[in-house]
Structure formats: structure tokens, C-alpha cells
Computed example of a mutant assay.
Amino acid sequence: MRVLVTGASGLLGREVAGLLVRQGHAVTTFQRRPSGVEGAADVLGSVTDEDAVRAAVQGAEGIIHLAAKVSFTGRAAEFSEVNVEGTRRLLRLARAAGVREAVFVSSPSVANSGAAIAGLGAEAADPEHAHGDYSRTKAEAELLALAADTPAFRVAAVRPHIVWGPGDTQLVERVLERAGRGRLPLLDAGAALIDTTYVDNAASAIVAALHRMDHVHGRAVVVSNGEPRPIGELLAGICAAGGVPAPSWAVPGAVARGAGAVVERLWTWAGRKEEPPMTRFLAEQLSTAHWFDQRETRRLLDWTPAVSLDEGLARLAEHYGGRPPGSGPRR
């Protein structure tokens, strides 16, 4: 199959594109900088550019759409232009180009209003109650994507939950950097039970959705390792792999959520580009249970995760080679 992967310069996008190449598909990647995926043809551009998107979708039979603005802060209009209008543009031009199938890579946060999640499946995306501009716009985009599903243009949504692995700058590097400086607290003593997804598992589930369109088109599925653990235990494992002390001081979750909301507004008002030390969304993620029932996902995708959390942490330790952050991974 000729497959276009958008957003392949990120951790998950690179793994998705690489897996498709290894499976023998003809892969084109589309993003603003080179993907570095061996065996894939890079097309550089943005989903905000009509002409660039039109050129990228030509000849594709399937699309996996990962390109998105992912951040805890930023101007609302920027999230909308990339996540909502970029998805709308891609779907419209893909359909016009004769693309048959598309997988929209979403997030469980599209259906999370901040309350604890314990063993639920893929609840309906809810932009009105999603917390933060990222979650809100991803929810809007997911609804657009699923509404575009037809027999001639089949669309599914896959929501991988907290993806991490070697080379991850969204979670792992932030944890190690802040823990290494003693600035990573445990919220509510790190007791919240959460699930995460090792990057190889997230990629294989997304690719499985493309192959299982008969079963998943028109619907969303949540993907995780299916191994919920206390957040404090997970953070300690990441810190051990990276060679830094685990967080040892605690802050009440309610205090962190309130402070995070204030910091988030100040960061956005000031137009600061770096990620803030805390936001309301991040505080919720660190202090609220969120794990999902994976039985329906595994049945629909005919998929199971190949890499356990413990094996993933071992691979992370191998990547860092026991060196502290800043000294670089072992070569």
C-alpha cells in the first residue's frame, strides 16, 4: 500500500513510518523538517499549507495523520489552525485525491474532563468539556475525522495514551531534567494509578488500525500497554533508567492544579515558547487516575502490546547507558 504519514519527525510518527517501511509499504512522510526514516520519501511542508497538502496526498492509498500542535500552552488560534483546520484540509484533499483509508491519531484527553478514569473504553470526544486548547482542538478534529467516514473513504481514530520511549522529549526528557534539578514533585504522594504506552506498541496499534479498517472505521479506540501502575512508581522507573534520583517531595494535587492554571495563563500571556513547570492539565495527569479497559481495543485491532513496561524501562536504561541527563545517550 502507498501510505502517507504526517508528523513523522516526532517520536511516534518516526516509529509508525519505520514500521510501515519494514512491512513493505511504499511510505511518504509529510512534516516541516526531515523525518530521518530510512526507506521513506520525505515531503516537507505544513498541514496549514493548502498546496503542500494537495501535493503530499497525491498517489496515496492510505493516510496516518499524526501532525499536530502538541503543547501545554500557546495561543488558542494556533492550536485550531493546525489541529482542527489542518485536519479538515487534509481530509478534504485526501478524499478528492482518491485516498481510500485514513487513521487519525488522537488522544484520550479528548474525552477527559479532568475526572478520574478507571477502566473505561473510548468515550465520545467532547470538545466542550476537554481541558486545555490541545485537548479541545484534538477533540474537534477527531469528530471531524470520524464524521468523514464513508464506505469509499474509511476513517478510524486511535488514541494512544501517554506514549514514551528512548528519544522521547515530551515525557521522558522532561521528567529527567526536572527530577535531576529536584523540581519534580509527587502529587498526592504519587498514588494515582495510570497506564502508559511504550512507543513500539503505540506504533503497531496505529498500523494495525490501517490494516483492520473493516472492523474499526467510523469509531475510536484507546490504546495503552494495559499495565496501570502508580504514577510515583512509573516516575521512579524512568528516573532510574536515566540515572537521576526519583522525586521524593510531595504536593497536594489540588494545590498543583490551582497553581498550574495560573502559570498556564501567565505563560500564554507572556508568549513564552518553553514549556512551563506546571499547568492545570499536567497537574491533573499527575494526580488523577486514568487507565483504560483494553479488551475491546485488542479485539478490534487483533493486536496485543509486544513490549511490557518493564522491558520498555530496560530499553530506556540501555539508551541512557546509566549516564545522567546532559551527558547524552550511549552511542
Rank of each mutant, 00 (worst) to 15 (best):
E15Q: 13
M278Y: 11
A8P: 06
R54D: 13
E284H: 14
G253D: 11
V53T: 09
H215Q: 11
V3P: 11
E140K: 10
T28D: 10
S287N: 11
A68S: 15
E264H: 11
V251G: 12
D42Q: 09
R178M: 06
A26K: 14
T196K: 04
A148R: 01
E311H: 06
G45V: 01
T297S: 14
G312D: 06
L193H: 00
A209T: 09
D310M: 00
E177T: 06
E318H: 14
E140I: 00
R219N: 04
G132S: 06
C239F: 04
G121H: 13
A241C: 01
F153K: 03
S9R: 11
V110M: 13
A209P: 12
M278N: 13
P151S: 05
F281L: 07
Q31M: 04
E173P: 01
Q58S: 11
E311W: 05
R100M: 02
G39A: 00
G218N: 08
I117V: 12
A94G: 15
R331K: 11
G271F: 04
T137I: 01
P34T: 03
T297F: 07
V21S: 12
A205R: 09
V175S: 04
R272W: 15
A130K: 05
A156G: 08
A67G: 02
S9Y: 02
T28F: 02
S80W: 13
G321Y: 10
V307M: 04
A203G: 11
T169M: 00
T196L: 10
G322Q: 08
Q285H: 03
Q285D: 01
L93Q: 15
A115D: 15
A147W: 05
T288Y: 09
E50F: 06
V3K: 12
H319M: 01
L301M: 05
E233M: 01
E85D: 14
W269P: 01
A157I: 03
A118P: 00
S46R: 04
A145R: 10
A270I: 00
L146K: 09
P329I: 02
V43I: 04
M278E: 15
E50R: 15
V307W: 05
R323H: 13
S224C: 02
A241W: 08
A147K: 04
V99Q: 14
A96F: 06
R75S: 13
V84H: 15
W164M: 07
A17E: 10
P185F: 02
A124L: 09
R32L: 05
A52E: 08
V207K: 04
K138F: 05
A241N: 06
